[in-house]
């Protein structure tokens, strides 16, 4: 790229600068240091920098027309499966086959065989209705992708668990039980079979086909909807409250069952899947809780005044040190570790 002349850089030049864009979107300790030095050196550029930053954020957003894309993706997937199946039936595929779709041409004989097999299986299902559900769990610092039999995908964050029935009944809602945090990408079924996520606090998220994030830690449950539509209901002390969510909605459910709603950028709340973390005006105490919950450390602050300080940041995080470095830089802190406890105090 043509070297930017820092002294005369305009907002448009900054907004087109690769390093500047990376800093705005994915700040690191080094880039934050670099750009704060830049701001100090050229104080007259403050307005240009602020404008460049807004331009980058505006342009990085999704566009209005993007919302239909996800339904299109489902549609094309169905057609793609058909095309591959047809291609296979014409015998032009010489590679390995999809085991799910069988590997012989359909004849009366094999159709009969399939029916018998189906009957046998459903009988088995019926008798095994009390079969043990399956629980998937992640350790501290671990993430896990789970693909369900209906092709829905769950990304389980650290120190979380999800319980799934061994088999879905066709006419009953697909129900899963979550503890911790997970991102759900739920497929829509032809019979509009529901998908329900239950949290340990009694919140139920009722879905048709959609993408959303559920956070069930600490004082309140937090649900962020990325795509599609969900109905959220919370039952506390026998009282049920309900709410329909639109994409970009964040709803919190307090321990008392109160629902609160605000608009957010869902990408920020699902960024943990890509090893990024978003602190949305967190107190340092809340940052500490996140480190405790996701990585299993104990975090101690030297005083209430310090732990009440607030931070808004979007960070790339591979391990808890990445968060601690940023805190140390931003608030000028001394951070020490003894065994499993991290002590944080002012310098």
């Amino acid at each position: 790229m043509p070297d930017m002349n820092n002294a005369t850089a305009t907002a448009a030049e900054l907004a087109a600068d690769h390093d500047f864009i990376q800093w705005v979107k994915y700040p690191t300790r080094e880039s934050t240091m670099y750009w704060s030095q830049f701001a100090e050196q050229y104080p007259e550029k403050a307005q240009e920098m602020a404008e460049a930053r807004r331009l980058v954020l505006l342009l990085s957003q999704e566009q209005a027309e993007d919302h239909s894309s996800d339904e299109d993706a489902d549609l094309v997937w169905e057609q793609l499966q058909e095309a591959i199946q047809q291609d296979r039936e014409h015998g032009r595929d010489d590679g390995p086959v999809f085991s799910l779709w069988g590997y012989t041409r359909r004849t009366w004989l094999s159709a009969a065989a399939v029916i018998i097999l189906l009957l046998a299986t459903s009988a088995l299902l019926f008798t095994r209705q009390s079969a043990e559900p399956v629980t998937y769990a992640t350790a501290y610092g671990e993430k896990r992708i789970i693909q369900l039999s209906d092709k829905s995908v769950i990304v389980l964050n650290a120190n979380s668990s999800i319980t799934i029935p061994e088999k879905w009944e066709k006419d009953e809602p697909r129900t899963v039980q979550l503890r911790g945090e997970a991102f759900f990408s739920v497929t829509q079924q032809p019979n509009r079979q529901q998908f329900i996520v239950k949290t340990s606090k009694g919140t139920e998220i009722n879905v048709l086909g959609t993408e959303f994030n559920v956070y069930d830690r600490g004082q309140e449950d937090r649900v962020v909807l990325a795509n599609g539509k969900v109905r959220l209901s919370a039952t506390q002390n026998g009282k049920t409250r309900q709410l329909e969510m639109q994409p970009g909605d964040l709803v919190t459910v307090s321990a008392a069952g109160d629902l609160r709603h605000r608009r957010v950028d869902p990408d920020l709340y699902t960024a943990w899947q890509h090893n990024k973390v978003y602190f949305d005006d967190y107190t340092l105490r809340e940052v500490g809780v996140l480190i405790e919950q996701q990585y299993g450390y104990k975090v101690e602050f030297s005083g209430k005044e310090l732990s009440g300080q607030r931070i808004t940041a979007f960070l790339e995080v591979k391990n808890p040190e990445d968060i601690l470095h940023t805190l140390a830089e931003t608030f000028e802190l001394k951070i020490t570790q003894q065994e499993n406890t991290i002590y944080i105090s002012s310098l």
């Binding site: 993007d66 894309s69 996800d70 299109d72 993706a73 997937w77 793609l80 992708i145 693909q147 995908v153």
Partner: peptide, 18 residues
Amino acid sequence: SEDDFSLLYRHFAPIMLR
């Protein structure tokens, strides 16, 4: 692996459509 083919599709089809 058909599961991984499906994962690739799910992951990248939206950005390709966009």
